[in-house]
Amino acid sequence: AIERGSKVKILRKESYWYGDVGTVASIDKSGIIYPVIVRFNKVNYNGFSGSAGGLNTNNFAEHELEVV
């Protein structure tokens, strides 16, 4: 089962992080479509409006993740 702290591989082909491994930061139990927040070591794009980097978290559905 996917739980907080799990290392997961991203299976969503259109994702910037496809094939990468991230760490589960949290799981939303409220029934939303993409409840699993995954944190990565790298950012997906340069930040804007003065922020240092881009996003390094993204929401995924459990079926888009594979525990490694």
Rank of each mutant, 00 (worst) to 15 (best):
S30V: 05
V67Q: 05
F48Q: 15
N46T: 10
Y16S: 05
N41R: 09
P35K: 13
I2S: 02
E64D: 03
N46L: 09
G53A: 11
I10E: 01
G54P: 08
N58M: 14
I2R: 00
Y34S: 06
T57L: 07
R12L: 06
K9Q: 05
T23S: 04
A52S: 13
V36S: 00
V67T: 05
I32L: 11
V36G: 00
N46W: 07
G31A: 12
E62M: 14
E14I: 05
G50S: 11
V24I: 03
G19W: 04
S6Y: 11
L65E: 00
G5Y: 04
A61I: 02
G54A: 09
F60R: 01
G50L: 07
K29N: 12
V68W: 08
I32N: 11
S51F: 09
K29C: 13
K13Y: 07
G19N: 10
K13A: 08
E66D: 04
V8F: 03
D28F: 04
I37A: 10
Y34W: 09
G54V: 10
A25M: 15
V68A: 04
R12K: 06
S26L: 08
G22K: 01
A25V: 15
I32C: 13
I2V: 07
G19Q: 09
K29L: 11
N41Y: 08
G19Y: 04
N58Q: 15
N46F: 07
A25R: 07
S26Q: 08
K9V: 08
S6E: 04
K42Q: 08
W17N: 03
N59E: 07
E66F: 07
A52W: 09
N58E: 15
E3A: 12
V21E: 05
I2T: 02
N41S: 11
S26G: 13
N44I: 12
L11S: 02
G54I: 08
V67N: 05
H63A: 07
V24W: 03
G53D: 13
E62N: 07
D20L: 12
G19K: 05
I2C: 11
L65W: 01
S26M: 14
L11V: 04
L11E: 02
V43W: 13
I32R: 09
A52N: 12
G31Y: 09
F48R: 02
R39L: 12
Y18H: 04
R39M: 14
K9R: 14
N59A: 14
L55S: 14
F40V: 03
N44H: 13
S51A: 12
E64K: 04
K42T: 11
T23C: 11
R4V: 15
N56R: 07
Y16E: 08
R12H: 03
G22F: 04
L65Q: 01
V8W: 02
I2L: 11
N41W: 08
L55C: 15
R39Y: 12
S26N: 09
R39Q: 13
S26F: 13
V38P: 00
V8G: 02
V8H: 01
I10C: 09
F60S: 02
F40Q: 00
I33F: 11
F40I: 03
G19T: 03
G31R: 04
I33E: 14
V24P: 00
S51M: 11
I33M: 12
T23P: 02
I10Q: 02
V36W: 04
N56Q: 08
F60M: 01
P35F: 13
E14G: 11
L65C: 03
S30N: 07
E14A: 09
V8C: 09
G31C: 14
W17E: 00
L65T: 01
S49K: 06
G5E: 03
S6N: 08
N58D: 15
S49C: 15
R39E: 12
G47S: 09
E64I: 03
A1G: 13
D28P: 02
F40C: 03
H63D: 10
S30K: 07
N59D: 05
F40Y: 01
D20M: 11
S51L: 10
L65V: 05
I10T: 01
G19P: 01
A25T: 13
N58K: 06
G54C: 15
V67Y: 04
Y34A: 07
N46R: 04
G22V: 04
E64L: 02
S15M: 03
L65I: 05
A52D: 14
K7H: 13
T57S: 10
V8S: 00
K7E: 06
N44W: 15
I37G: 04
V68L: 10
H63F: 10
V21M: 06
A61F: 06
K13M: 06
E3F: 11
G53Y: 06
V67L: 12
T57I: 10
V67R: 05
V38W: 00
G31E: 14
S26I: 06
V68M: 09
N41E: 14
G47W: 07
A52T: 13
V43R: 06
N56K: 07
Y45I: 15
E66L: 10
R12M: 04
S26R: 11
N41Q: 13
E3H: 12
Y34I: 03
A52K: 08
G53C: 15
S15Y: 04
T57D: 08
E62F: 15
R4L: 14
F60H: 00
S6Q: 10
D20R: 08
P35S: 11
N56V: 10
A52R: 04
I32M: 13
R4P: 14
I2D: 01
V67I: 11
V24F: 03
E64Q: 02
S26H: 13
S26A: 13
E66H: 05
S30I: 06
N44F: 14
G19H: 05
Y18F: 11
S15I: 02
R4C: 15
V21R: 02
W17K: 00
E14V: 05
S51D: 14
V24E: 00
N41I: 08
S30W: 04
F60D: 00
K29Q: 09
Y18W: 06
R12V: 04
S6L: 08
G50F: 07
D20C: 14
K9M: 07
D28I: 07
N46H: 12
I10W: 02
G19D: 06
T23Q: 05
I2E: 01
V36M: 02
V67G: 03
W17I: 00
E66P: 02
K42H: 07
V36F: 14
Y34V: 02
T57E: 13
R12C: 08
V67D: 03
K42A: 07
G54Y: 08
K29R: 13
V38Q: 00
V36T: 00
I27C: 05
I27R: 02
S15Q: 01
V67E: 04
V21L: 07
R39I: 14
D28S: 08
V8A: 00
S15W: 03
Y45V: 15
G47C: 15
H63Y: 12
H63M: 05
G5L: 03
G53S: 10
F60Q: 01
R4A: 13
D20F: 13
N56L: 09
L55A: 10
A25C: 15
G22W: 04
E62G: 05
E64R: 02
L55Y: 11
L11W: 05
K9S: 03
V68K: 03
N56G: 06
K9W: 04
V8Q: 01
V43Q: 08
V21I: 12
A1L: 12
G5Q: 02
G5H: 04
F40A: 00
F60V: 00
K9A: 03
P35L: 10
